[in-house]
Write a protein that binds this DNA or RNA. Sequence first.
DNA 1: GTCTATAGGTGGATAGAC
DNA 2: GTCTATCCACCTATAGAC
Lengths: 218, 218
Amino acid sequence: MARKPPQAASKQRGRKIEDKRSVILSAALGLFSRFGLHGTTVDQVAARAEVSKSNLLYHFANKEELYVSVLRELLQVWLEPLRGFAAEQDPRTAIAGYIRNKLALSRDRPDASRLFCLEMVQGAPLLRDALARELRDLVERKSEVIRAWVADGRLAPVEPHHLVFALWAVTQHYADFAVQVEALTGRTLADADFFEETVRNLQAIVLDGIARRPGGAA
Amino acid sequence: MARKPPQAASKQRGRKIEDKRSVILSAALGLFSRFGLHGTTVDQVAARAEVSKSNLLYHFANKEELYVSVLRELLQVWLEPLRGFAAEQDPRTAIAGYIRNKLALSRDRPDASRLFCLEMVQGAPLLRDALARELRDLVERKSEVIRAWVADGRLAPVEPHHLVFALWAVTQHYADFAVQVEALTGRTLADADFFEETVRNLQAIVLDGIARRPGGAA
DNA sequence: GTCTATAGGTGGATAGAC
DNA sequence: GTCTATCCACCTATAGAC
Protein backbone atom coordinates (compact mmCIF):
# COMPACT_ATOMS: atom_id res chain seq x y z
CA MET A 1 0.00 0.00 0.00
CA ALA A 2 0.96 3.63 -0.45
CA ARG A 3 3.50 2.61 -3.06
CA LYS A 4 5.43 5.58 -4.31
CA PRO A 5 6.60 5.64 -7.87
CA PRO A 6 10.26 4.69 -8.11
CA GLN A 7 12.34 7.63 -6.98
CA ALA A 8 14.42 9.15 -9.73
CA ALA A 9 18.12 9.64 -9.16
CA SER A 10 18.36 13.44 -9.20
CA LYS A 11 16.81 15.67 -6.54
CA GLN A 12 15.27 17.94 -9.14
CA ARG A 13 13.42 15.06 -10.66
CA GLY A 14 12.13 13.93 -7.25
CA ARG A 15 11.01 17.50 -6.63
CA LYS A 16 9.03 17.63 -9.84
CA ILE A 17 7.26 14.43 -8.98
CA GLU A 18 6.36 15.69 -5.54
CA ASP A 19 4.99 18.86 -7.11
CA LYS A 20 2.79 16.87 -9.41
CA ARG A 21 1.60 14.66 -6.61
CA SER A 22 0.62 17.66 -4.56
CA VAL A 23 -1.23 19.27 -7.46
CA ILE A 24 -3.19 16.06 -7.85
CA LEU A 25 -3.81 15.83 -4.11
CA SER A 26 -5.22 19.30 -3.90
CA ALA A 27 -7.43 18.77 -6.93
CA ALA A 28 -8.64 15.57 -5.30
CA LEU A 29 -9.39 17.29 -2.02
CA GLY A 30 -11.58 19.84 -3.75
CA LEU A 31 -13.63 17.21 -5.50
CA PHE A 32 -13.79 14.52 -2.83
CA SER A 33 -14.93 17.07 -0.28
CA ARG A 34 -17.80 18.17 -2.47
CA PHE A 35 -18.93 14.89 -4.02
CA GLY A 36 -17.46 12.19 -1.83
CA LEU A 37 -15.32 9.25 -2.87
CA HIS A 38 -17.99 7.61 -4.98
CA GLY A 39 -19.36 10.85 -6.39
CA THR A 40 -16.00 11.78 -7.86
CA THR A 41 -14.40 10.15 -10.91
CA VAL A 42 -10.70 9.77 -11.52
CA ASP A 43 -11.28 11.57 -14.78
CA GLN A 44 -12.58 14.64 -12.98
CA VAL A 45 -9.62 14.78 -10.64
CA ALA A 46 -7.23 14.38 -13.55
CA ALA A 47 -8.96 17.13 -15.48
CA ARG A 48 -8.81 19.55 -12.56
CA ALA A 49 -5.16 18.75 -11.93
CA GLU A 50 -4.51 19.06 -15.66
CA VAL A 51 -3.01 15.63 -16.12
CA SER A 52 -4.30 12.63 -18.02
CA LYS A 53 -6.18 9.92 -16.21
CA SER A 54 -3.55 7.30 -16.95
CA ASN A 55 -0.83 9.63 -15.78
CA LEU A 56 -2.66 10.14 -12.52
CA LEU A 57 -2.88 6.38 -12.15
CA TYR A 58 0.85 6.20 -12.65
CA HIS A 59 1.41 8.36 -9.56
CA PHE A 60 -1.30 6.77 -7.45
CA ALA A 61 -1.87 3.06 -7.84
CA ASN A 62 -5.63 3.42 -7.70
CA LYS A 63 -8.47 5.67 -6.67
CA GLU A 64 -8.58 4.52 -3.09
CA GLU A 65 -4.88 5.10 -2.54
CA LEU A 66 -5.38 8.64 -3.77
CA TYR A 67 -8.26 9.12 -1.38
CA VAL A 68 -6.34 7.79 1.60
CA SER A 69 -3.38 10.00 0.74
CA VAL A 70 -5.66 13.03 0.87
CA LEU A 71 -7.06 11.97 4.23
CA ARG A 72 -3.63 11.40 5.71
CA GLU A 73 -2.59 14.99 5.06
CA LEU A 74 -5.89 16.22 6.40
CA LEU A 75 -5.61 14.66 9.80
CA GLN A 76 -2.52 16.71 10.56
CA VAL A 77 -4.18 20.01 9.69
CA TRP A 78 -7.10 18.94 11.75
CA LEU A 79 -5.17 18.10 14.90
CA GLU A 80 -2.97 21.17 14.85
CA PRO A 81 -4.98 23.82 16.76
CA LEU A 82 -5.63 21.56 19.72
CA ARG A 83 -1.89 21.07 20.33
CA GLY A 84 -1.77 24.63 21.63
CA PHE A 85 -3.50 23.89 24.95
CA ALA A 86 -1.13 23.92 27.92
CA ALA A 87 -1.87 23.97 31.64
CA GLU A 88 0.23 27.10 32.25
CA GLN A 89 -2.04 29.16 30.02
CA ASP A 90 -5.01 31.11 31.22
CA PRO A 91 -7.94 28.89 30.20
CA ARG A 92 -10.07 31.82 29.12
CA THR A 93 -7.37 33.04 26.75
CA ALA A 94 -6.56 29.55 25.52
CA ILE A 95 -10.17 28.69 24.71
CA ALA A 96 -10.97 32.05 23.18
CA GLY A 97 -7.89 31.68 20.99
CA TYR A 98 -8.80 28.15 20.04
CA ILE A 99 -12.24 29.24 18.86
CA ARG A 100 -10.69 31.96 16.75
CA ASN A 101 -8.06 29.64 15.23
CA LYS A 102 -10.55 26.93 14.44
CA LEU A 103 -12.96 29.38 12.84
CA ALA A 104 -10.10 30.75 10.74
CA LEU A 105 -9.48 27.20 9.62
CA SER A 106 -13.15 26.81 8.76
CA ARG A 107 -12.83 29.95 6.69
CA ASP A 108 -9.50 29.17 5.00
CA ARG A 109 -9.71 25.40 4.55
CA PRO A 110 -13.37 24.50 4.39
CA ASP A 111 -12.53 21.66 2.01
CA ALA A 112 -10.45 19.95 4.65
CA SER A 113 -13.17 20.27 7.23
CA ARG A 114 -15.85 19.00 4.89
CA LEU A 115 -13.92 15.96 3.74
CA PHE A 116 -13.12 15.09 7.33
CA CYS A 117 -16.81 15.44 8.13
CA LEU A 118 -17.88 13.29 5.17
CA GLU A 119 -15.47 10.57 6.18
CA MET A 120 -16.61 10.68 9.79
CA VAL A 121 -20.31 10.59 9.00
CA GLN A 122 -19.77 7.53 6.87
CA GLY A 123 -18.10 5.69 9.72
CA ALA A 124 -14.52 6.62 8.88
CA PRO A 125 -13.64 3.17 7.58
CA LEU A 126 -10.27 4.50 6.47
CA LEU A 127 -9.50 6.64 9.50
CA ARG A 128 -10.56 4.32 12.30
CA ASP A 129 -7.01 3.28 13.12
CA ALA A 130 -5.65 6.79 13.08
CA LEU A 131 -8.51 7.92 15.31
CA ALA A 132 -7.90 5.18 17.78
CA ARG A 133 -4.22 6.05 18.05
CA GLU A 134 -3.04 9.59 17.30
CA LEU A 135 -6.25 11.44 17.97
CA ARG A 136 -6.99 9.52 21.13
CA ASP A 137 -3.55 10.19 22.58
CA LEU A 138 -3.73 13.88 21.84
CA VAL A 139 -7.22 14.27 23.26
CA GLU A 140 -6.24 12.38 26.41
CA ARG A 141 -3.29 14.69 26.99
CA LYS A 142 -5.41 17.79 26.48
CA SER A 143 -8.14 16.39 28.70
CA GLU A 144 -5.58 16.36 31.51
CA VAL A 145 -4.95 20.05 30.92
CA ILE A 146 -8.66 20.77 31.15
CA ARG A 147 -8.97 18.70 34.32
CA ALA A 148 -6.15 20.73 35.85
CA TRP A 149 -7.96 23.95 35.01
CA VAL A 150 -11.11 22.62 36.64
CA ALA A 151 -9.20 21.48 39.72
CA ASP A 152 -7.75 24.99 40.07
CA GLY A 153 -11.25 26.44 39.98
CA ARG A 154 -10.45 28.37 36.84
CA LEU A 155 -13.00 26.41 34.84
CA ALA A 156 -16.46 25.20 35.75
CA PRO A 157 -16.64 21.48 36.43
CA VAL A 158 -17.03 20.04 32.94
CA GLU A 159 -16.17 16.67 31.43
CA PRO A 160 -13.21 17.41 29.14
CA HIS A 161 -14.49 15.23 26.30
CA HIS A 162 -17.76 17.08 26.07
CA LEU A 163 -16.03 20.43 26.08
CA VAL A 164 -13.71 19.33 23.28
CA PHE A 165 -16.65 18.00 21.25
CA ALA A 166 -18.55 21.23 21.78
CA LEU A 167 -15.60 23.33 20.64
CA TRP A 168 -15.10 21.20 17.57
CA ALA A 169 -18.78 21.13 16.71
CA VAL A 170 -19.55 24.83 16.93
CA THR A 171 -16.49 25.88 14.94
CA GLN A 172 -16.64 23.28 12.16
CA HIS A 173 -20.30 23.95 11.67
CA TYR A 174 -19.43 27.11 9.77
CA ALA A 175 -17.41 25.10 7.26
CA ASP A 176 -19.45 21.91 7.02
CA PHE A 177 -22.86 23.59 6.99
CA ALA A 178 -21.71 26.69 5.15
CA VAL A 179 -24.57 26.32 2.68
CA GLN A 180 -27.09 26.44 5.48
CA VAL A 181 -25.34 29.30 7.25
CA GLU A 182 -25.40 31.28 4.06
CA ALA A 183 -29.02 30.39 3.28
CA LEU A 184 -30.10 31.63 6.70
CA THR A 185 -27.85 34.62 7.29
CA GLY A 186 -26.92 35.62 3.77
CA ARG A 187 -23.29 35.84 4.84
CA THR A 188 -20.10 33.77 4.95
CA LEU A 189 -16.93 33.74 7.02
CA ALA A 190 -15.13 35.34 4.09
CA ASP A 191 -16.96 38.51 5.15
CA ALA A 192 -14.61 39.96 7.79
CA ASP A 193 -17.42 41.53 9.84
CA PHE A 194 -19.34 38.30 9.94
CA PHE A 195 -16.19 36.43 10.92
CA GLU A 196 -15.60 38.71 13.91
CA GLU A 197 -19.23 38.59 14.91
CA THR A 198 -19.09 34.81 14.86
CA VAL A 199 -15.91 34.68 16.93
CA ARG A 200 -17.43 37.01 19.54
CA ASN A 201 -20.70 35.15 19.78
CA LEU A 202 -19.17 31.69 20.08
CA GLN A 203 -16.64 32.87 22.64
CA ALA A 204 -19.42 34.48 24.66
CA ILE A 205 -21.66 31.42 24.51
CA VAL A 206 -19.00 28.91 25.51
CA LEU A 207 -17.15 31.02 28.06
CA ASP A 208 -19.95 32.90 29.77
CA GLY A 209 -23.10 31.04 28.79
CA ILE A 210 -26.31 32.68 27.73
CA ALA A 211 -28.58 32.39 30.76
CA ARG A 212 -29.24 35.61 32.69
CA ARG A 213 -31.56 36.49 35.52
CA PRO A 214 -33.72 39.50 34.75
CA GLY A 215 -32.10 42.25 36.77
CA GLY A 216 -28.90 40.18 37.14
CA ALA A 217 -25.46 41.04 35.77
CA ALA A 218 -25.85 41.87 32.10
CA MET B 1 -41.33 14.31 -10.81
CA ALA B 2 -42.40 12.49 -7.67
CA ARG B 3 -44.81 10.44 -9.75
CA LYS B 4 -46.72 8.06 -7.57
CA PRO B 5 -47.77 4.72 -8.95
CA PRO B 6 -51.41 4.75 -10.05
CA GLN B 7 -53.61 4.58 -6.96
CA ALA B 8 -55.60 1.39 -6.72
CA ALA B 9 -59.34 1.60 -6.17
CA SER B 10 -59.64 0.05 -2.71
CA LYS B 11 -58.25 1.64 0.43
CA GLN B 12 -56.63 -1.59 1.52
CA ARG B 13 -54.67 -1.79 -1.66
CA GLY B 14 -53.53 1.81 -1.32
CA ARG B 15 -52.50 1.02 2.24
CA LYS B 16 -50.38 -1.91 1.13
CA ILE B 17 -48.60 0.22 -1.40
CA GLU B 18 -47.86 2.90 1.16
CA ASP B 19 -46.49 0.23 3.49
CA LYS B 20 -44.14 -1.02 0.83
CA ARG B 21 -43.04 2.48 -0.03
CA SER B 22 -42.21 3.18 3.58
CA VAL B 23 -40.28 -0.07 3.94
CA ILE B 24 -38.23 0.93 0.93
CA LEU B 25 -37.76 4.46 2.23
CA SER B 26 -36.45 3.31 5.55
CA ALA B 27 -34.09 0.82 3.95
CA ALA B 28 -32.89 3.62 1.69
CA LEU B 29 -32.31 5.97 4.62
CA GLY B 30 -30.09 3.43 6.34
CA LEU B 31 -27.91 2.94 3.29
CA PHE B 32 -27.82 6.48 1.91
CA SER B 33 -26.84 7.82 5.33
CA ARG B 34 -23.90 5.46 5.53
CA PHE B 35 -22.63 5.39 1.97
CA GLY B 36 -24.13 8.43 0.32
CA LEU B 37 -26.18 8.59 -2.88
CA HIS B 38 -23.38 7.38 -5.12
CA GLY B 39 -22.03 4.84 -2.67
CA THR B 40 -25.34 3.01 -2.54
CA THR B 41 -26.78 0.86 -5.30
CA VAL B 42 -30.44 0.32 -6.00
CA ASP B 43 -29.77 -3.39 -5.62
CA GLN B 44 -28.61 -2.93 -2.06
CA VAL B 45 -31.67 -0.92 -1.11
CA ALA B 46 -33.92 -3.50 -2.74
CA ALA B 47 -32.17 -6.34 -0.90
CA ARG B 48 -32.48 -4.63 2.47
CA ALA B 49 -36.15 -3.83 1.84
CA GLU B 50 -36.65 -7.40 0.62
CA VAL B 51 -38.06 -6.49 -2.76
CA SER B 52 -36.63 -7.00 -6.20
CA LYS B 53 -34.77 -4.19 -7.88
CA SER B 54 -37.26 -3.89 -10.69
CA ASN B 55 -40.09 -3.85 -8.21
CA LEU B 56 -38.42 -1.02 -6.37
CA LEU B 57 -38.15 0.84 -9.65
CA TYR B 58 -41.84 0.33 -10.15
CA HIS B 59 -42.59 2.26 -6.97
CA PHE B 60 -39.94 4.93 -7.47
CA ALA B 61 -39.27 6.10 -11.00
CA ASN B 62 -35.52 6.20 -10.49
CA LYS B 63 -32.78 6.31 -7.91
CA GLU B 64 -32.80 10.07 -7.52
CA GLU B 65 -36.53 10.23 -6.91
CA LEU B 66 -36.06 7.69 -4.15
CA TYR B 67 -33.29 9.79 -2.66
CA VAL B 68 -35.30 12.98 -2.75
CA SER B 69 -38.28 11.22 -1.19
CA VAL B 70 -36.09 10.20 1.71
CA LEU B 71 -34.80 13.74 2.13
CA ARG B 72 -38.27 15.22 2.09
CA GLU B 73 -39.38 13.15 5.07
CA LEU B 74 -36.16 13.98 6.84
CA LEU B 75 -36.57 17.72 6.78
CA GLN B 76 -39.75 17.47 8.81
CA VAL B 77 -38.16 15.38 11.55
CA TRP B 78 -35.31 17.81 11.53
CA LEU B 79 -37.37 20.94 11.95
CA GLU B 80 -39.65 19.57 14.63
CA PRO B 81 -37.82 20.31 17.92
CA LEU B 82 -37.25 23.97 17.08
CA ARG B 83 -40.98 24.59 16.70
CA GLY B 84 -41.27 24.34 20.47
CA PHE B 85 -39.68 27.71 21.22
CA ALA B 86 -42.18 30.35 22.35
CA ALA B 87 -41.62 33.75 23.95
CA GLU B 88 -43.86 32.96 26.94
CA GLN B 89 -41.55 30.16 28.03
CA ASP B 90 -38.70 30.54 30.44
CA PRO B 91 -35.66 30.62 28.14
CA ARG B 92 -33.57 28.50 30.47
CA THR B 93 -36.18 25.75 30.50
CA ALA B 94 -36.83 26.03 26.78
CA ILE B 95 -33.17 25.74 25.84
CA ALA B 96 -32.39 23.00 28.34
CA GLY B 97 -35.35 21.06 26.96
CA TYR B 98 -34.30 21.66 23.39
CA ILE B 99 -30.84 20.24 24.07
CA ARG B 100 -32.37 17.15 25.63
CA ASN B 101 -34.83 16.63 22.78
CA LYS B 102 -32.25 17.10 20.08
CA LEU B 103 -29.84 14.71 21.79
CA ALA B 104 -32.63 12.16 22.08
CA LEU B 105 -33.10 12.55 18.33
CA SER B 106 -29.37 12.05 17.80
CA ARG B 107 -29.68 8.86 19.82
CA ASP B 108 -32.90 7.54 18.26
CA ARG B 109 -32.55 8.68 14.65
CA PRO B 110 -28.86 9.00 13.93
CA ASP B 111 -29.49 7.97 10.34
CA ALA B 112 -31.64 11.00 9.75
CA SER B 113 -29.07 13.33 11.21
CA ARG B 114 -26.24 11.78 9.22
CA LEU B 115 -28.03 11.91 5.90
CA PHE B 116 -28.97 15.52 6.50
CA CYS B 117 -25.34 16.22 7.31
CA LEU B 118 -24.08 14.42 4.20
CA GLU B 119 -26.44 16.37 2.03
CA MET B 120 -25.47 19.67 3.63
CA VAL B 121 -21.73 19.11 3.41
CA GLN B 122 -22.09 18.39 -0.27
CA GLY B 123 -23.84 21.67 -0.87
CA ALA B 124 -27.41 20.41 -0.52
CA PRO B 125 -28.13 20.59 -4.25
CA LEU B 126 -31.50 18.95 -3.61
CA LEU B 127 -32.44 20.84 -0.47
CA ARG B 128 -31.44 24.35 -1.41
CA ASP B 129 -34.98 25.43 -2.20
CA ALA B 130 -36.46 23.94 0.93
CA LEU B 131 -33.73 25.58 2.99
CA ALA B 132 -34.36 28.94 1.45
CA ARG B 133 -38.08 28.72 2.20
CA GLU B 134 -39.34 26.57 5.07
CA LEU B 135 -36.23 26.53 7.18
CA ARG B 136 -35.56 30.20 6.74
CA ASP B 137 -39.08 31.16 7.77
CA LEU B 138 -39.00 28.97 10.83
CA VAL B 139 -35.60 30.22 11.94
CA GLU B 140 -36.66 33.83 11.46
CA ARG B 141 -39.71 33.33 13.66
CA LYS B 142 -37.66 31.65 16.38
CA SER B 143 -35.01 34.34 16.13
CA GLU B 144 -37.69 36.82 17.12
CA VAL B 145 -38.41 34.77 20.21
CA ILE B 146 -34.73 34.79 21.14
CA ARG B 147 -34.51 38.55 20.56
CA ALA B 148 -37.47 39.03 22.89
CA TRP B 149 -35.73 37.01 25.59
CA VAL B 150 -32.61 39.14 25.17
CA ALA B 151 -34.64 42.35 25.28
CA ASP B 152 -36.21 41.20 28.56
CA GLY B 153 -32.76 40.64 30.02
CA ARG B 154 -33.48 36.96 30.47
CA LEU B 155 -30.77 36.00 27.99
CA ALA B 156 -27.31 37.43 27.43
CA PRO B 157 -27.04 39.58 24.31
CA VAL B 158 -26.45 36.98 21.61
CA GLU B 159 -27.13 36.97 17.89
CA PRO B 160 -30.00 34.48 17.48
CA HIS B 161 -28.51 32.83 14.40
CA HIS B 162 -25.29 31.96 16.16
CA LEU B 163 -27.13 30.55 19.14
CA VAL B 164 -29.27 28.39 16.89
CA PHE B 165 -26.20 27.16 14.99
CA ALA B 166 -24.42 26.37 18.23
CA LEU B 167 -27.38 24.40 19.55
CA TRP B 168 -27.66 22.45 16.33
CA ALA B 169 -23.96 21.79 16.11
CA VAL B 170 -23.31 20.52 19.61
CA THR B 171 -26.30 18.18 19.61
CA GLN B 172 -25.93 16.71 16.12
CA HIS B 173 -22.28 16.10 16.71
CA TYR B 174 -23.15 13.04 18.79
CA ALA B 175 -24.99 11.50 15.84
CA ASP B 176 -22.85 12.66 12.92
CA PHE B 177 -19.48 12.06 14.60
CA ALA B 178 -20.63 9.06 16.64
CA VAL B 179 -17.66 7.05 15.43
CA GLN B 180 -15.28 9.64 16.78
CA VAL B 181 -17.20 10.04 20.03
CA GLU B 182 -17.04 6.31 20.56
CA ALA B 183 -13.36 6.08 19.60
CA LEU B 184 -12.48 8.74 22.16
CA THR B 185 -14.87 7.99 25.03
CA GLY B 186 -15.64 4.33 24.47
CA ARG B 187 -19.33 5.11 24.94
CA THR B 188 -22.46 5.94 22.94
CA LEU B 189 -25.73 7.76 23.60
CA ALA B 190 -27.43 4.37 23.79
CA ASP B 191 -25.74 4.11 27.20
CA ALA B 192 -28.25 5.84 29.49
CA ASP B 193 -25.61 7.16 31.88
CA PHE B 194 -23.60 8.64 29.06
CA PHE B 195 -26.74 10.19 27.61
CA GLU B 196 -27.54 11.97 30.87
CA GLU B 197 -23.94 13.04 31.33
CA THR B 198 -23.98 14.53 27.85
CA VAL B 199 -27.25 16.38 28.43
CA ARG B 200 -25.94 17.87 31.69
CA ASN B 201 -22.62 18.94 30.24
CA LEU B 202 -24.05 20.56 27.13
CA GLN B 203 -26.74 22.36 29.12
CA ALA B 204 -24.11 23.64 31.53
CA ILE B 205 -21.76 24.81 28.79
CA VAL B 206 -24.40 26.65 26.80
CA LEU B 207 -26.43 28.07 29.66
CA ASP B 208 -23.77 28.94 32.21
CA GLY B 209 -20.52 28.90 30.26
CA ILE B 210 -17.30 27.37 31.48
CA ALA B 211 -15.19 30.33 32.56
CA ARG B 212 -14.72 30.80 36.31
CA ARG B 213 -12.57 33.07 38.37
CA PRO B 214 -10.45 31.20 40.91
CA GLY B 215 -12.25 31.85 44.18
CA GLY B 216 -15.39 32.89 42.28
CA ALA B 217 -18.77 31.16 42.34
CA ALA B 218 -18.25 27.47 41.57
C1' DG C 1 -47.73 -5.59 -9.33
C1' DT C 2 -44.00 -8.58 -9.76
C1' DC C 3 -40.77 -11.17 -12.15
C1' DT C 4 -36.49 -12.42 -15.60
C1' DA C 5 -33.60 -10.84 -18.97
C1' DT C 6 -31.01 -7.51 -21.02
C1' DA C 7 -29.91 -3.10 -23.06
C1' DG C 8 -26.95 0.80 -22.60
C1' DG C 9 -23.76 3.65 -20.36
C1' DT C 10 -20.07 4.79 -17.10
C1' DG C 11 -15.80 4.52 -15.02
C1' DG C 12 -11.66 2.14 -12.98
C1' DA C 13 -7.75 0.06 -14.46
C1' DT C 14 -4.31 -2.02 -17.83
C1' DA C 15 -1.51 -2.73 -22.22
C1' DG C 16 1.80 -1.20 -24.89
C1' DA C 17 3.85 2.40 -27.95
C1' DC C 18 6.79 6.39 -27.57
C1' DG D 1 6.90 9.40 -17.42
C1' DT D 2 3.35 10.18 -20.50
C1' DC D 3 0.27 9.07 -23.99
C1' DT D 4 -3.77 6.43 -26.73
C1' DA D 5 -6.59 2.68 -27.01
C1' DT D 6 -9.20 -0.65 -24.90
C1' DC D 7 -10.89 -4.10 -21.68
C1' DC D 8 -14.16 -5.38 -18.41
C1' DA D 9 -16.94 -5.00 -14.34
C1' DC D 10 -20.63 -2.73 -12.46
C1' DC D 11 -24.94 -0.41 -12.25
C1' DT D 12 -29.18 2.05 -13.75
C1' DA D 13 -33.14 1.57 -16.16
C1' DT D 14 -36.30 -0.68 -19.46
C1' DA D 15 -38.74 -4.45 -22.10
C1' DG D 16 -41.88 -7.74 -21.93
C1' DA D 17 -43.87 -12.13 -20.00
C1' DC D 18 -46.91 -13.62 -16.28
